[in-house]
Design a protein around this nucleic acid. Structure first.
Length: 559
RNA sequence: UGGCCCAUGGUGUAACUGGCAACACGUCUGUUUUUGGUACAGAAGAGUCUAGGUUCGAGCCCUAGUGGGCCAACCA
């Protein structure tokens, strides 16, 4: 009925196995837990698709939980952006949660830990604590404060909480094992004092819980069954379980953490910290710059939610290091846009084409199909006149037989219009072509059904009437980095690999039908690529971002 | 000098409890086409890091080696 034999990924195998070992299907619960300290990127999109995809597959709730335990880095702006991005992708979270909602519960549990002799206040400097922690190769040493009395610990924690102590003066540490081979188990810090305004709790709390103390307990509070995170948290699992042991009530569901490899995309960086660096250094114009691999950047670039979700599904999840080529992402946008984007004609690098035997002053309105992949897309009209604009590289005075475009003496089709034959060129003093003259076959009108119109010619060009052309700004984007993996070079910083030509702004000449386009409208500029109307557009000037060029087997031949 | 994780065509993933390695992207050929796009048909490309072991039989299990990654923030 439901099992389509679609291969399961290892995460799904884990769930299926748990289902056969006692977990009930209605106990399944997942979560996506971003820290609101930056915008979501394509890597998060994979995680979102994984977690929300599981929610859909198992009909289980998926919570959106903001891991907001560090007021020094987090802001409401990011909370809003994250919610916007997830919604745009088309997912609905079951409950909007905040780790900060659990501060009191966490505090109460911390008190309990102290009473059980499982936590203590350390009053050393962070340097001293780091020193005693040892290294991966050498065991740590116990803090001199490790055996403070329960009363003193309770009293100090209370003072920390009330803001009666200074930042950095004391921390609360779990009493685990200073000799553990796992550094995270060497009495990890649970609370530190931060005198900053928190975006939700304001100044109510002076102490803030650390990630490890917060995450698993939050999962437990929400009764999340499976807590999926990236591989770098694998060593945290032991601590996750240890903390859970301290508060776990066997009547309740016990969450489990499992890890998958983060997805790396070629020619970009997938790290909030590095993306923030690109923003603050002014390399890009904000988190939603169309060159950014952020969800909002991809959106502005013209990607669709489906294209991103299909991408995430198709690359799957694994546990090994990976570098996914951007061509994979690009395939997914093209596939989606091909089905839905109306086609229009826009000339990006114009040269004038004059039809010598076409009547002066005449304007014909020709019918053009909006999308041959979608009959319901209908038709539009485009004006045709004696003077047109075509792409410079669609003409060559003389060319070999592999060149399917306009040359002197050869015929080509003008898309949706007539068959023309190259006659002559006019050049300026420097030898640049300023005008191409041609003749047209009046009987060859597209769609007329005449014998002449059915004639096969070697190529078809897009064009626009010079008189009617609408000048538009076109932003041609290219990959942000010249290296496939800019941030894994041992010698050089990733900032050294920034592609200086990642953005080229030009003026294009569009057919007049686009005039009333709205922001985020997507088009295929025929024979060129997919473009989207940018939010910087005004009623005076349309601005298009190039999402991705069409696949181009000619450029390889031409090389 | 430690602990843990990982290792399948160029890239990313599959291969249920061991039974002659599959899918997608990319690449290359053709066909169709008023987009050198799309669609369709087809091809090449790995014998599963290495060496042992268990087994009638191993990509799947075991051991060792090699290679890569992670771990010493009062970040998440």
């Amino acid at each position: 009925m439901n099992n389509e034999a679609a291969p399961l990924n290892f995460i799904e195998h884990i769930i299926e196995e748990d289902l056969t070992k006692g977990y009930k299907k209605d106990q399944l619960c997942f979560r996506f837990p971003p820290e609101p300290n930056g915008y979501l990127h394509i890597g998060h999109a994979s995680s979102i698709c994984l977690n929300f995809g599981l929610g859909e597959r198992y009909n289980a709730p998926v919570n959106l939980r903001f891991d907001d335990t560090n007021p020094a880095k987090e802001e409401q702006e990011f909370v809003d952006a994250i919610k916007r991005d997830i919604s745009w992708l088309g997912y609905e979270w079951a409950t909007e949660c905040y780790a900060s909602d659990y501060f009191q519960q966490l505090y109460d549990w911390a008190v309990q830990l102290i009473k059980n002799g499982k936590a203590y206040v350390d009053s050393q400097t962070s340097e001293a604590i780091a020193e005693q922690k040892g290294t991966p190769n050498t065991p740590g040493k116990p803090s001199p404060f490790r055996n403070r009395s329960v009363e003193e610990n309770l009293d100090l924690l209370e003072k920390m909480k009330n803001g009666e102590t200074k930042e950095g003066e004391h921390v609360l540490r779990a009493k685990v094992n200073m000799e553990s081979p796992n550094m995270l188990m060497r009495d990890p810090v649970m609370y530190r004092t931060i005198n900053k305004n928190h975006h939700r709790t304001g100044t109510d709390w002076k102490i803030f819980p650390m990630y490890d103390w917060t995450h698993g307990e939050s999962d437990y509070i929400e009764q999340v069954s499976h807590s999926f995170c990236t591989l770098e948290f694998l060593p945290h699992r032991e601590l996750y379980d240890w903390f859970l042991d301290q508060v776990y009530d066997s009547e309740k569901l016990r969450p489990k953490q499992r890890e998958f490899a983060r997805r790396n995309l070629s020619h970009t960086v997938v790290s909030k910290r590095k993306l923030a660096q690109l923003v603050s250094a002014g390399v890009v114009n904000g988190w939603d710059d169309p060159r950014m691999p952020t969800i909002s950047g991809l959106r502005r670039r013209g990607y669709t939610p489906d294209s991103i979700k299909n991408f995430a599904d198709s690359i799957g999840v694994g546990k090994r290091e990976n570098l996914i080529d951007v061509s994979h992402l690009e395939f997914n946008v093209r596939e989606d846009l091909n089905k839905i984007a109306p086609r229009i004609m826009v000339v990006l690098d114009p040269v004038k084409l004059i039809i010598d035997n076409y009547p002066e002053g005449k304007t014909e309105m020709l019918e053009a199909e909006n999308n041959q992949e979608d009959e319901s897309a209908g038709y539009r009209e485009v004006p045709f006149t004696k003077e047109l604009l075509i792409e410079r590289d669609d003409f060559l005075e003389e060319a070999n037989r592999k060149f399917f475009r306009l040359t002197i003496g050869k015929e080509v089709r003008l898309k949706n219009a007539y068959i023309i034959k190259g006659e002559s060129v006019v050049k300026d003093a420097d030898g640049n072509i300023t005008e191409i003259h041609c003749s047209y076959d009046p009987d060859s009108k597209s769609g007329s059904g005449s014998e002449a119109s059915l004639r096969k010619v070697k190529g078809t060009l897009h064009w626009v009437s010079a008189e009617h052309a609408l000048p538009v700004e076109v932003r041609l984007y290219d990959r942000l980095f010249t290296e496939a993996s800019p941030d894994t070079n041992k010698e050089k910083d990733f900032m050294e690999f920034i592609n200086p030509d990642s953005l080229q702004v030009i003026t294009g000449y569009a057919e007049p039908s686009v005039k009333d386009s709205k922001i985020e409208d997507k088009f295929q500029f025929q024979r060129l690529g997919y473009f989207v109307v940018d939010k910087d557009s005004t009623s005076q000037k349309l601005i298009f971002n190039r999402t991705v060029p069409l696949r181009d087997s000619w450029s390889k031949l031409a090389e």
